[in-house]
Design a protein around this nucleic acid. Structure first.
Lengths: 215, 215, 215, 215
DNA sequence: CCATAACCGAGACGGTACGTCGCGTCTTGAT
DNA sequence: ATCAAGACGCGACGTACCGTCTCGGTTATGG
């Protein structure tokens, strides 16, 4: 697998290319990103880049991964605070550290190739979720969240809201929005959940508009 | 603004181009989409297309809008069912009707131009959300959801989870997943929400691991 | 065949490209010739060149043809002079007007494609031969050369000697060499041609070393 | 000059490279010939080839020389036959043994470097001419050709016509063509050579169209 | 009624990036 | 010192779209 003979690769080149890639993504966006520019900026050539990343998407993924580090959510013994901060950290990682408008087209392009898609998930998505997932799991263990809580689903909700906000360009999740989101997930929106479940099990004919209001 | 004299546009061309665009997006994805191919497929020329859509992104937006119709969620007098179905309909619209992997890069490219971005939101995003928003608002009016519920936030959660699932290629939100999502939002995950709020208002020093477990 | 619609080609571009091609061939030789350099020098782009000459060899052929003009050999009523001058004019055309070392690789590359090869012959070779062929034919008509003379063969000899000199880099056929060549062809080298023919018809056994010297 | 110590060169490599070079030239032509392919075909590496032939043209020259052997023209005591056969042998050597369309671009590329050019002449051109030159000289000695005959010039004519035929793709000099060429050179084309010389020495004014026909 | 004006088809124009390939050089580790 | 292996900077290749433009011809309405 690993080449026995031959001139070894210059490790400086790989690093320079990653750095140049990030810079260019930040300047020109994803579609404006050109391999040739990256080569020039990194002081090397297209061929040298292709040797390391035969597929351009891999290069972009690795470049993003090199700047996307999500610090672990600190344990404050306050579930509400922990979860709020998890959302904020996630939002900060995606909105601030990553170049704008890169993740979306990248993911779309990777959708076709399964291997590429897997690499993207493991290199970019999973790490950014893990901090939040740890916090949720901690809250469950602490007894603050119901024992049947699916941490993955909760983090999905955190992550996807953050993602969509960034994607659709609405205001980037501030502290107040993070609180509203967290509280909504903690508390739920139903006035009486059990009653709603009960109704949903009735045959359709027995449901009446007024019946939903408890007598 | 509108031309007074001159030869009127052939209305068939516009429709043919939209249809060809959808086909090509489905076949080649967003980056593989070429204006010239669309012209050939529609039996016309680049120039004729450009006269109608000077900016390519507008063409793609309009083409997507022409196939993205979200039917209104029917009122079954069962809030739980209604919300579930809203999620499912949303998922179905985004996953099935739209070509895969087109929306994401499109949004990313539109992010720069505010006008383009606004058009995209109003032409694509808003319509697909409105059905769900109506259902949520109905449930609030019915008294099933707490009166302080923010319908927009709830729909955001529905929409973003649908979007992320579709985008990241996780399983495309089947019926069971829709139920789990709905129930989670209705019921919340906290064992005792008020207590968590209380704790979060204490100074950090007074929080202890054991204190979160109610005596 | 001829395009009915469309923006007409800028004729200046074609001319500029031919001129640039000649210049570059003169500077860098055939193998050093690059389409991209020609585009830059002509103030245009590769694509514009390819529209006119999809095959690079065609471009080179046409460029050479644009500078290779062999003036008709003037009639001096002196066969010996005419032929000498034909050779000299031919040599001058090939050695002086054409860039050095271009014709040879060009011909070699065209050998594979019959159509290309035909174009090369008609565009470059035939014109340069015709002047000499006219002169030879005139000499036959005048009665100075034997009536059974094959003008094509004679011109072949002229042309090929000129070509080989240019090719192999031996001194470029000066006036004296042209005279020697012409006289050799006019006079022949045999002491007694008829006798040599006679001998060649004998059975091999009857030929003796001494027998060739006339008694 | 010659290395004293170190690992000795594997003599098999040189031979394998020459053979591979000939094969590839025959398959891909001169411009299609790539050093890397030759290395692979010969079961070795570029570096090993470069050690032996630092300049690629040298490799091609040596490869061609390894297959270009012109057997001596046998002495049949028939000048006409000998010369004919010289031409045929020459044609056969150049047309059959050498890969097509290689010599021309090679010569063109070598034209720049004098040393390279000299090597090419001595390694390829001279040997193929020598057999014919011996035959011509023999005919002079035998008294069949005029004593003032320049053997080099005669061979030049033979060789160049062969070369041009092969190069320009006209029929590859069959037996009949060889005879016509030989006879033309032996006999000349002038009806009365001495008279043509006489005329050429007159002032231009004294030449008249009718004067060339002897009364 | 016919001129104006916008349409349509066709296609050339200058750009720019793509991915591939070969060059000639250099750097390893091992024989 | 040679060998196999392969990275390196360089630069040209041919392909494909982009967005713009220039045509000749067509089709409506408004002076």
């Amino acid at each position: 697998m690993s080449p026995t003979g031959g001139r070894p690769r210059d490790p400086a080149i790989g690093a320079a290319v990653l750095a140049a890639t990030i810079e260019l993504l930040r300047e020109d966006g994803y579609t404006g990103f050109a391999l040739e520019k990256a080569a020039v900026r990194a002081g090397t050539t297209k061929a040298a880049i292709r040797r390391r990343w035969p597929v351009r998407q891999r290069l972009v993924i690795d470049a993003l991964a090199s700047v996307l580090v999500t610090p672990p959510t600190p344990d404050t013994h306050c579930t509400r605070c922990d979860l709020q901060q998890s959302v904020e950290l996630l939002a900060e990682a995606l909105d601030t550290r990553l170049p704008q408008g890169v993740l979306a087209p990248l993911v779309a392009e990777c959708a076709a190739d399964p291997e590429l898609h897997r690499h993207l998930l493991t290199a970019l998505v999973e790490p950014s979720r893990s901090a939040a997932e740890v916090a949720v799991r901690r809250a469950v263990d602490r007894g603050d969240l119901r024992p049947d809580t699916d941490p993955g689903l909760v983090v999905d909700l955190f992550a996807s809201v953050v993602y969509q906000r960034a994607l659709l360009g609405t205001a980037p999740l501030d502290r107040a929005a993070a609180r509203r989101l967290t509280d909504l997930l903690l508390r739920g929106v139903a006035v009486d959940f059990d009653r709603l479940v009960e109704i949903s099990r009735l045959p359709a004919a027995h449901r009446h508009p007024q019946s939903t209001t408890r007598s």
